[in-house]
Lab assay of single mutants.
Amino acid sequence: MAAGGDHGSPDSYRSPLASRYASPEMCFVFSDRYKFRTWRQLWLWLAEAEQTLGLPITDEQIQEMKSNLENIDFKMAAEEEKRLRHDVMAHVHTFGHCCPKAAGIIHLGATSCYVGDNTDLIILRNALDLLLPKLARVISRLADFAKERASLPTLGFTHFQPAQLTTVGKRCCLWIQDLCMDLQNLKRVRDDLRFRGVKGTTGTQASFLQLFEGDDHKVEQLDKMVTEKAGFKRAFIITGQTYTRKVDIEVLSVLASLGASVHKICTDIRLLANLKEMEEPFEKQQIGSSAMPYKRNPMRSERCCSLARHLMTLVMDPLQTASVQWFERTLDDSANRRICLAEAFLTADTILNTLQNISEGLVVYPKVIERRIRQELPFMATENIIMAMVKAGGSRQDCHEKIRVLSQQAASVVKQEGGDNDLIERIQVDAYFSPIHSQLDHLLDPSSFTGRASQQVQRFLEEEVYPLLKPYESVMKVKAELCL
Rank of each mutant, 00 (worst) to 15 (best):
C304M: 07
A163L: 12
K170S: 04
L155W: 03
A103R: 12
Q325S: 12
I427Q: 00
C173Y: 02
A256L: 00
E283A: 15
V465Y: 04
I339K: 10
V390K: 04
I369G: 11
R137P: 14
S207W: 03
L255E: 01
T94N: 09
Q408V: 03
W326T: 07
Q161T: 03
T38L: 07
V429S: 12
L484K: 12
H7A: 08
T347Y: 04
C98Q: 11
F460C: 09
Q408R: 09
S474T: 15
D182Y: 03
E360Y: 15
N353I: 11
F160R: 03
S112A: 01
V324H: 12
D87M: 04
Y432P: 04
P133V: 12
N185V: 15
R141T: 13
Y13E: 14
T166I: 12
T38H: 02
N384D: 05
T450M: 04
S434I: 08
M387K: 02
H217W: 15
A103C: 14
C27R: 14
V478T: 05
R296L: 14
K246G: 02
G54P: 04
E213Q: 14
E383I: 01
D332E: 01
V262Y: 04
V115K: 03
P281L: 11
D349K: 02
S454N: 05
K134R: 09
F30E: 02
V226P: 00
L174C: 15
Y114G: 05
L84S: 06
P318V: 13
S448R: 12
E462I: 15
L186A: 12
F36M: 14
S257E: 10
G54W: 03
Q221E: 11
F327K: 00
L484V: 12
A235H: 10
E50W: 12
Y243W: 09
C98V: 08
M76P: 11
Q458S: 14
P378V: 11
L44R: 06
A348T: 15
Y13W: 14
V363R: 05
D268I: 00
C172Y: 15
L183Y: 10
K224R: 10
Q286A: 03
P293Q: 01
A453P: 01
R20S: 00
N68P: 15
C399D: 10
D422Y: 12
K187Q: 08
D192V: 13
L183D: 04
M312C: 06
W326G: 04
L352F: 15
L440E: 03
Y294M: 02
L443Q: 04
V92P: 00
S474H: 14
T227N: 08
G451H: 00
V429W: 03
H442C: 05
G8V: 13
L55T: 07
E425P: 08
R374D: 10
I265A: 12
K170W: 06
C305M: 03
I72N: 12
L406T: 07
L124W: 11
A103D: 13
I385M: 04
I385N: 09
D216T: 12
E370K: 02
Q51T: 08
G259L: 06
R426K: 13
H310C: 09
T350G: 09
T267E: 06
L155A: 04
E70R: 09
S257P: 05
L271N: 00
G96M: 11
A388S: 08
K75Y: 03
L352Y: 05
R309D: 06
S448L: 14
Q177C: 06
R426Q: 13
P162G: 07
N185Q: 07
L319V: 08
T450R: 02
K284R: 10
A431N: 12
Q286E: 01
K284F: 13
M181L: 13
I358Y: 08
L319N: 00
G451A: 08
E464H: 00
S253K: 08
A110Y: 00
N297L: 01
L443Y: 03
T167V: 02
G54M: 03
Q63R: 02
D430M: 14
S207T: 15
M476W: 15
P56Y: 03
C304P: 07
V364C: 15
A388V: 04
V226G: 01
S407I: 00
R85E: 06
L482E: 14
T330K: 01
M316A: 07
L406N: 08
L482K: 13
G240A: 11
G418T: 04
E283S: 11
V364G: 03
C399S: 13
A411E: 10
V390L: 03
K199Y: 05
P471T: 06
G54L: 05
L69S: 09
L124T: 07
Y365I: 13
F30A: 04
I287C: 13
G104E: 08
K295N: 05
Q409A: 07
I373N: 11
R137H: 08
N297D: 04
R459K: 11
L135N: 13
Y21L: 11
C304A: 12
L341C: 14
L440D: 01
D333Y: 00
T330A: 10
S407C: 12
L406K: 11
R309Q: 07
H217R: 08
A206I: 06
C399F: 04
F95T: 07
E343V: 01
M76W: 11
D191E: 13
F327G: 08
D59Q: 06
Q205F: 05
I237S: 11
K284A: 05
G96C: 06
G203I: 01
R188L: 10
V115N: 09
L132T: 07
C305K: 00
T38E: 12
L121N: 12
A411H: 04
R33L: 10
H442W: 04
N357F: 15
C173Q: 06
S289Y: 03
R188I: 13
L341R: 10
D349T: 07
S434N: 13
F145Q: 04
Q397V: 06
H107S: 02
L482P: 14
L55F: 04
A256W: 00
H86M: 02
L209K: 07
C27T: 13
H107G: 02
V247A: 10
E70A: 06
I106G: 02
L130G: 08
T450K: 10
E79L: 09
T204K: 01
R85I: 04
K246D: 00
R459G: 14
P56I: 07
F28W: 06
L131V: 05
D87A: 03
S447G: 13
Q177F: 12
S395D: 12
R337V: 02
R190I: 09
D430S: 11
P293Y: 07
A78K: 05
A22H: 08
A335I: 01
K147E: 13
R296P: 07
Y365H: 07
L42A: 06
S9C: 12
M299L: 05
R234M: 15
D422I: 14
L69A: 04
R374I: 00
C266N: 04
Q161W: 00
S151G: 09
G197A: 12
N353Q: 12
A453Y: 05
A206V: 12
Q241P: 00
V429A: 00
T204F: 01
T158P: 03
L69P: 03
N336L: 13
V390Q: 15
W326K: 03
K233I: 06
D349V: 05
A143F: 15
A235D: 10
H97G: 05
L179M: 08
V413M: 14
A150G: 10
T202H: 06
D445K: 06
P293D: 00
M292Y: 00
E425N: 09
I403M: 12
A342C: 00
T201C: 15
V364K: 02
D117P: 00
G419W: 14
M476E: 15
S253I: 08
E220W: 11
I351W: 00
